[in-house]
């Protein structure tokens, strides 16, 4: 036996061990793909920031964030109704959809029999994949008339159409529910089985263990799920556009038409010629929405990583 050992390829090696064009080519493709993603993201952010900052500068942050009158055709860019609509509809979504989803996730992971849990998770994964236009359409057909009736009872003639924050909140709740459910269920499932057994062995019921051991151990994941749900609700456009009424005003109550940042962007886009203040104002509003979502994501990250020393 020869004692020569070499790390260089020799002719008796199988061909795939030898250097070929394949590897450098593959590297090139992957590197290019990565650059493409990076570049396109930077371009989007760059355009948005550039026009947005021009708009912000021209209008002034105080007017853009706090002004009550949004009428670009008259040169009035008070963003308060938009911000208010976005914040309230997303908060309602958390309350009506996010919170129940967390409780349902506790039930599914901690209390339900395994087949029921699997069925729920599949159903929720399916629901999370339904396009938003379908949710919006169903809400328009079924929820808006129902809201008109409820609003009629509560406010008489003040709520003619049923469109508004109530319907938007319920709709967004339905839309973020599945996502919040799946994310918090996975947070609960990550809690070690040992801890549940320890709790049971002390004479605690499964529910007691779920509330006092599993939930505290998983709360970071749950808050993360709720924040992502909130961000999604705040950015949702198509479905909300169909049910919020599109009135550029602060609503009198939950059953009067109003607007959100995202839906107002869609509504005003056609009339905003590039380069005009109206157009820059929309960019500024989009920038506000982006910064708002980015802050939520950063906050979520911090919170999730904060627990890992």
């Amino acid at each position: 036996m020869s004692a020569e050992v070499s790390l260089l390829p020799v002719s008796s090696d199988p061909p795939h061990r030898r250097r070929s064009f394949g590897e450098p080519l593959a590297r090139l493709v992957f590197t290019f793909a990565a650059l493409l993603v990076l570049l396109s993201t930077l371009m989007v952010l760059g355009f948005l920031a550039q026009r947005g900052l021009i708009g912000l500068w021209a209008i002034g942050p105080a007017e853009l964030l706090l002004g009550a009158d949004w009428r670009p055709e008259l040169g009035r860019f008070g963003g308060r109704p938009l911000l208010f609509g976005t914040a309230v509809s997303a908060a309602l979504a958390l309350l009506l959809g996010g919170a129940p989803a967390v409780l349902a996730a506790i039930y599914s992971v901690e209390l339900a029999p395994a087949p029921a849990r699997r069925a729920m998770e599949r159903l929720m994964a399916l629901a999370a994949a339904v396009p938003s236009v379908v949710y919006g359409w169903l809400a328009l057909v079924h929820l808006v008339p129902a809201a008109a009736q409820v609003g009629g009872v509560l406010y008489g003639d003040g709520a003619p159409g049923g469109e508004g924050l109530a319907v938007s909140g319920v709709l967004l709740g339905l839309m973020i529910g599945p996502t919040v459910f799946l994310l918090s269920a996975s947070a609960f499932a990550k809690v070690p089985k040992d801890l549940r057994e320890a709790s049971l062995a002390l004479g605690a019921s499964p529910l007691h263990g779920a509330l006092y051991v599993v939930f505290p151990a998983a709360w970071r994941g749950v808050v993360g799920a709720l924040l992502l749900g909130f961000a999604r609700a705040a950015g949702e456009t198509m479905a909300v556009q169909m049910v919020i009424g599109g009135a550029r005003q602060l609503p009198l109550h939950l059953f009067t038409p109003t607007t959100t940042i995202a839906t107002q962007l869609v509504a005003d886009m056609q009339n905003a010629r590039p380069g005009t203040l109206a157009s820059d104002a929309l960019y500024a509003m989009a920038l506000v929405l982006l910064v708002f979502s980015a802050l939520l994501v950063v906050f979520t990250r911090r919170l999730l990583l904060g627990g890992q020393k």
Binding site: E197, S199, A201, L202
Partner: peptide
């Protein structure tokens, strides 16, 4: 069974203190 486990306690193979 909950009452049984109050009278018959258990210590497990791996230490499993609660994160409290």
């Amino acid at each position: 069974p909950v009452l049984v486990r109050r009278r018959v306690g258990m210590v497990f193979q791996r230490p499993n203190p609660f994160p409290k």
